[in-house]
Design a binder for these strands. Structure first.
Length: 368
DNA sequence: AAATCTCTCAACCGCCGCTGT
DNA sequence: GACAGCGGCGGTTGAGAGATT
């Protein structure tokens, strides 16, 4: 790096850590003349620093509106969400976090968040699970028929699903939300995410997503759990997974029910009418890896003689976060390193509102 | 207590884009 | 249009603090 322990450099310009005296000079000058004109500032202020160094010192440290201390839980969530949209645009991210500098956010990302995402098996660049296609194929071939347990984490799975296919995400949402005792339970976080991608602004719903652990659900498999048609009755709803032919590697997903899918209508969330069924194709490996990650790794399954397989979804959700919502993606991404002490213990209670705020903020700032 | 290792973050570097001439 | 200067951005570094052996 460019830090010089000696603090001296050619041209007589000083480098390295700033002394309190230098800080005072810089502060005094900027208070009188305002920031800017960085090239002439050090000379006028009596500093033996380059203008760039003065600017950085001011913007990253001396500015009066800079917030000090650890990043809050909300800030951390915001960084992750914004980074998933903006990438390494630290200055843009910083613009959405009052009092935080791009340098500070960048450091925090590199030293905390990035490591944690990697630890969770999530690529910090793409925000998708670190799985290659071979792994997906392997999961496909081994787990659907063998009850194997691929070591995938649930939040990463949902994140991946969100990138792959909206309808598939809806299916997962439907599956997981069924563990709630509330029949009108919806996954607002994922809905917001989808709507964000579609450029739709939604009002944050008020449903409390922190439900008690759900009951054992039944996943009725046709033809002894053959993959060519998988019917998923869920609290009055039913989604069909159809395989075009036994050898085909593409599935279609038909959502033919209400109330687990919701739509945005004039800023209000409303149940999707039954006649608005959707059918979309997606590749078998993608679908299979996700479903089987859900069913194989974290959900206990026990097929019985009637061809009905029971899945205990409560284990899935409780093992990930205390929240029963599929929005646990964002929750679990941010459950370590909270105030340095209580790692992996803090839950989110503001993800949806935060997503909403970020979305609006980005729109307001013309970033989306 | 000392040596070593690990982590954090302030600060620098090089590059790029914008603006003025 | 070409060039130079400047400000801003993202990547990188290494001193210092804290943790571990």
């Amino acid at each position: 790096m460019g830090k010089s322990p000696s603090g001296e450099k050619n041209n007589g310009l000083k480098k390295g850590p700033w002394t309190p005296e230098e800080d005072e000079k810089l502060m005094d000058y900027i208070q009188k003349h305002g920031p800017g004109k960085w090239r002439i500032l050090p000379k006028n202020a009596g500093l033996r620093r380059c203008g760039k160094s003065c600017r950085l010192r001011w913007t990253n440290y001396l500015r009066p509106d800079i917030k000090r201390g650890r990043f809050s839980f909300e800030e951390e969530e915001a960084i992750i969400q914004l980074h998933s949209v903006l990438g390494n645009k630290w200055s843009t991210i910083a613009a959405s976090l009052p009092g935080r500098t791009d340098n500070e956010i960048k450091n925090y990302w590199n030293t905390h968040i990035k490591k944690r995402l990697l630890k969770m098996g999530i690529d910090p660049v793409t925000h998708t699970p670190c799985l290659d296609l071979l792994q997906l194929s392997s999961i496909l071939s081994s787990s659907l028929y063998n009850n194997s347990s691929p070591q995938l984490n649930y939040p990463g799975l949902l994140q991946m699903a969100s990138w792959l296919n909206p309808n598939l995400l809806n299916l997962l949402t439907t599956l997981l939300s069924s563990q709630s005792r509330n029949p009108d339970f919806i996954n607002t976080n994922q809905l917001l995410q989808q709507n964000q991608l579609a450029g739709i602004s939604t009002s944050p719903p008020e449903q409390n997503q922190h439900q008690c652990p759900g009951p054992i659900m039944q996943l009725n498999s046709v033809q002894s759990f053959q993959p060519n048609q998988l019917q998923v009755p869920i609290q009055g709803s039913q989604a069909k997974l159809n395989q075009v032919s036994p050898s085909d590697t593409h599935f279609s997903y038909q959502q033919s029910t209400q109330p687990n899918l919701w739509q945005c209508n004039g800023g209000q969330l409303e149940p999707q009418p039954a006649d608005q069924s959707a059918t979309e194709n997606f590749s078998l490996p993608k679908f299979n890896s996700m479903i089987n990650s859900l069913l194989g790794n974290q959900v206990s399954q026990s097929p019985n003689s009637d061809g009905v397989t029971n899945f205990n979804l409560s284990t899935l959700l409780s093992s990930t976060t205390s929240s029963s919502s599929p929005s646990a993606l964002n929750s679990s991404l941010t459950t370590t390193l909270v105030n340095g002490a209580a790692e992996d213990e803090r839950d989110t209670y503001c993800s949806n509102m935060l997503m909403y705020n970020i979305s609006n903020s980005l729109h307001d700032n013309g970033l989306l």
